[in-house]
Design a binder for these strands. Structure first.
Length: 821
RNA sequence: GCCGAAGUGGCGGAAUUGGUAGACGCCCAGGACUUAAAAUCCUGUGUUCAGCAAUGAACGUGCGGGUUCGAUUCCCGCCUUCGGCACCA
């Protein structure tokens, strides 16, 4: 019989479906394993090879763990809210639900053709009313915990289109010639900063790549320092005020020669003197117009203006000028800084530009008037007053001493700051979960009294137009019959903001444990049974946001007793991107996209699965290479011919030519088999699929070369291969007489004694250079090894006439004869 | 600029508690089978030099140093590529 992947793939996919082969089993007598993919946004362009790689990897793990006797949870779903469907709706009027459904169908079909073992009875879709209900329910839990609040937050506002833009849209709109400004708008915000310390600290407990942890740490951006209060100098023209700054270098306080406030700082108006007011107002107006992007782009030249006001440096008691400049951000620390130009690059640049004094307070190897000196190890100088002296102290001691002094005087306080900001959680869009809040009328008839929805889910109404309302509100603001209503508590207007796409993905891994539960987002029993996700695989593009947001929600749920672990994903593995054949990122515009459907067409699922893993290490970024696929295709052909030997002989095509025999295998083959099992087993556990496949190829090459068709060897090979190429494995398993699915066969075990060689090749070096080899029995004594090494033909001439000054022996490996002369 | 990862044959990659560099696969060349082709099977395949040849020697893991009997692996200094962050005081 000839190997025809189309026939056998369809046959076995139907078989698995009919027999519920991969329906999840919950058996508390067995260990559990929860292996999860980052679920996709079902885009119109279909599955790409990046999906293929990640999903195949988790599928191999899921199947492998099943062979190993685990109860495996391996689910799939759809992160189906999102901008593309909404933009398509704006263009064509097609309801996003329709587009989404179509895309889901096509995605699901492709996934099924790959022979993935997803338990489709647990399929979820973030846009389903049943799912939206629980997303909203969790939001209300956050609200009850005081972790959701309303604030005025600047957003990207397109002036011409009267629309709020997502960050990723800004460039596109600017290119079209529109004006994009920062405009404060009413937003729902989640207080993720309340969890900053735990989000940082608990990273230690996770089995994640160090690089991803580091990215999260940087994003959270913890820094220790202190807040220092500067008294504003009394001046008949200004009001009495204090300015608090945050600094990580209080040890340089004596060198603070000026202060800078962010242009948005609330004290700017009261500090500014009349003579400076016009300049200050002009500067503030200008920076308000600039988008964040522009501020960042213009980082070359520092700008700023003097307010006319002065503050007193608490250490030197000297008055120092107060400036405003947009290099100081209102959103970090206190929105104000003390500037130490001698020892901070930004301050130095600013001081040089505006001729502000630069005072050296750390012993510097060069003149700080000429060049800035940033250092933590240099001792303090010029840093003493009547009360306190830091001179001679380095960072740590100086820090402690000055902070103690400031605290004693009541003008300073230790403080930890984070770069992490609270999470702006509302979008002015249609295609998202409505935020389930209502505003009831107050005594004046204004809708100001905020209360949560009592009936969930709150679903989206149908709309005629998907464009934003033009007022900065979402299209929902135009749907009066949905927007306004009355209940026992009075007349209300609904919240028009919707949730961001992140919302659904913050907890989907929990819903998979109990996907159809109508009474709870997950039952406590099932939550506990499946516990943490044991392995989570996805692209590194989600290294920060999705993973941080999900961890945040999870911790909140943990705190209110709804989940049993404080972290959701125990082990995270990031697959590397697959590039086009040209080594560039795959993109439609480059025309280097490899589509999964065409691969399936040409080579079938087993080859596609095998090849995408054989390409290289899972975590590595690697280019696609269409030619190499022939190799794995041939490999499967060879496997096929181990069972169906007739093709090899060119004889007629009949089923009776199954060549599996019960003749014993040779010792060499048996050894090769045990080594292969060991290697494949280890590699599967460590997600090193490329070398696992290589090991199986080697084994098949040995079997082929020796014309060995031993039943045990082939059965073990098929079980090892089945996680990778399940269809052909099932077909051959059946062909050699098994009635049950290979998926239920236990993974072969190896005999450690049989993986060891009796003889080894010893390398012989002369002064570190390889000059020959010889065969020796394992465990041969060092003296014997040396004696043998000296007799090796190719070695002798390098020893001729030389004195051996040293013998180095690595047992069972190598002899190195060090010679002189 | 800062943080992180990585640089190995014509190509994808393998091998690191320091011990025969190049497993496996692609490409390529030669052979077997075939009327022929495809498929399949076998052999060879890092570079350079010497030789008719078997073979031998030198070089070789981004670059330059170092430690060591021995370095792809460890240390120091660079270069390049990719990813992330980007005035965070």
């Amino acid at each position: 019989m000839k190997y025809s992947y189309t026939d056998i793939e369809q046959k076995w996919q139907a078989y698995w479906q009919q027999h519920d082969t991969f329906t999840t089993i919950e058996d508390s007598a067995k260990p559990k394993y929860y292996v999860l993919d980052m679920f996709p946004y079902p885009s119109g362009s279909g599955l790409h090879v990046g999906h293929l790689e990640g999903y195949t990897a988790t599928d191999v793990v899921a199947r492998y763990k099943r062979h190993k006797g685990f109860c495996v949870l391996h689910p799939m779903g759809w992160d189906a809210f999102g901008l593309p469907a909404e933009q398509y709706a704006i263009k064509t009027g097609t309801h996003p639900r329709i587009t989404t459904e179509q895309n889901v169908q096509s995605f699901k079909q492709s996934l099924q053709r790959l022979g993935l073992t997803y338990d489709w009875s647990r399929e979820i879709n973030t846009t389903d009313p049943d799912y939206v209900k629980w997303t909203q329910w969790i939001f209300l839990k956050l609200y009850e915990q005081g972790l959701a609040y309303v604030a005025e937050v600047p957003v990207n506002w397109c002036v011409e289109q009267k629309t709020v833009l997502a960050n990723e849209e800004v460039d596109e709109y600017l290119e079209k010639g529109f004006t994009v400004v920062r405009k404060p708008l009413r937003q729902w915000v989640l207080k993720i900063t309340a969890y900053a310390e735990r989000l940082l600290h608990d990273l230690e407990t996770l089995d994640w790549g160090e690089n991803i942890k580091e990215m999260q740490r940087n994003w959270i951006g913890r820094s220790e320092g202190c807040n220092i209060t500067f008294e504003v100098q009394r001046n008949p023209l200004t009001t009495q005020a204090n300015i608090t700054v945050f600094t990580t270098r209080p040890d340089t306080l004596f060198g603070a020669t000026y202060m800078v406030l962010s242009p948005e700082h609330p004290l700017v108006a009261s500090i500014t003197t009349d003579t400076q007011r016009a300049a200050v107002d002009a500067y503030r107006a200008e920076s308000a117009k600039k988008s964040d992007l522009e501020r960042a782009e213009l980082q070359k030249e520092k700008t700023g203006v003097f307010t006319g006001g002065y503050a007193i440096n608490p250490a030197t008691r000297q008055p120092i000028p107060i400036w405003i400049a947009d290099y100081v951000l209102m959103s970090y620390g206190t929105g104000a800084i003390m500037a130490v130009p001698a020892h901070d690059e930004r301050d130095w640049e600013f001081a040089k530009k505006f001729n502000l004094p630069i005072v050296e307070v750390l012993q510097s190897p060069h003149d700080v008037q000429e060049q800035v000196f940033v250092n933590k190890d240099a001792p303090c100088v010029n840093s003493a007053n009547a009360d306190v002296s830091l001179n001679g102290l380095t960072f740590k001691d100086a820090f402690e001493k000055i902070v103690a002094w400031l605290e004693a005087k009541g003008v300073g306080q230790r403080k930890v700051n984070y770069k992490l900001r609270d999470w702006v959680f509302s979008r002015q869009r249609y295609w998202g979960e409505p935020i389930p809040m209502k505003y009831y009328q107050d005594a004046q008839g204004n809708y100001t009294i905020l209360k949560p929805e009592t009936t969930l889910p709150l679903l989206l109404p149908d709309v005629e137009k998907y464009e934003p309302s033009g007022t900065g509100e979402s299209p929902l603001a135009n749907i009066d019959h949905w927007l306004y209503g009355e209940d026992a508590q009075g007349k209300f207007r609904r919240e028009t903001n919707t949730m961001p796409q992140w919302a659904g993905s913050c907890w989907y891994y929990l819903r998979f444990k109990d996907a159809k539960n109508p009474n709870a987002f997950v039952s406590p029993e099932r939550e506990r049974y499946w516990g943490q996700v044991d392995l989570y695989i996805g692209g590194a593009e989600h290294a920060v946001l999705h993973l941080l947001y999900a961890r945040f929600w999870h911790k909140v749920l943990y705190d209110i007793g709804l989940v049993s672990h404080h972290e959701p994903f125990q082990k995270l593995f990031n697959q590397g991107m697959i590039l086009g054949e040209d080594g560039e990122k795959m993109s439609k515009s480059r025309g280097n996209v490899v589509s999964v459907d065409s691969l399936l067409e040409t080579y079938g699922a087993d080859v596609a699965r095998l090849y995408v893993l054989f390409l290289g290490p899972l975590e590595q970024v690697k280019p696609w290479n269409t030619k190499g696929i022939e190799g794995v295709s041939r490999f499967l052909g060879r496997v096929w011919r181990l069972v169906y030997t007739n093709l090899h002989d060119g004889k007629p095509d009949t089923d009776s030519t199954i060549g599996v025999t019960d003749e014993p295998m040779s010792a060499a083959i048996e050894k090769a088999m045990h080594k292969t099992i060991q290697k494949v087993d280890e590699d599967c556990q460590n997600l090193r699929f490329n070398t696992a496949i290589a090991a199986m190829m080697e084994f098949v090459n040995v079997l082929t070369k020796e014309n060995c068709h031993n039943r045990t060897a082939i059965e073990h090979l098929l079980v090892m291969l089945s996680p990778f190429a399940p269809h052909i494995a099932e077909e051959l398993w059946q062909a050699i007489g098994h009635g049950d699915s290979i998926a239920n066969a236990p993974f072969p075990t190896f005999d450690a004694a049989l993986t060891k060689d009796e003889t080894v090749t010893i390398a012989v070096q002369v002064s570190g250079k390889l000059r020959g080899t010889f065969e020796a029995t394992v465990g041969m004594q060092n003296d014997d090894l040396i004696a043998r090494a000296k007799e090796v033909d190719s070695v002798v001439k390098f020893l001729d006439g030389k004195e051996i000054v040293k013998h180095i022996v690595v047992p069972n490996k190598l002899v190195n004869l060090v010679v002189k002369g």
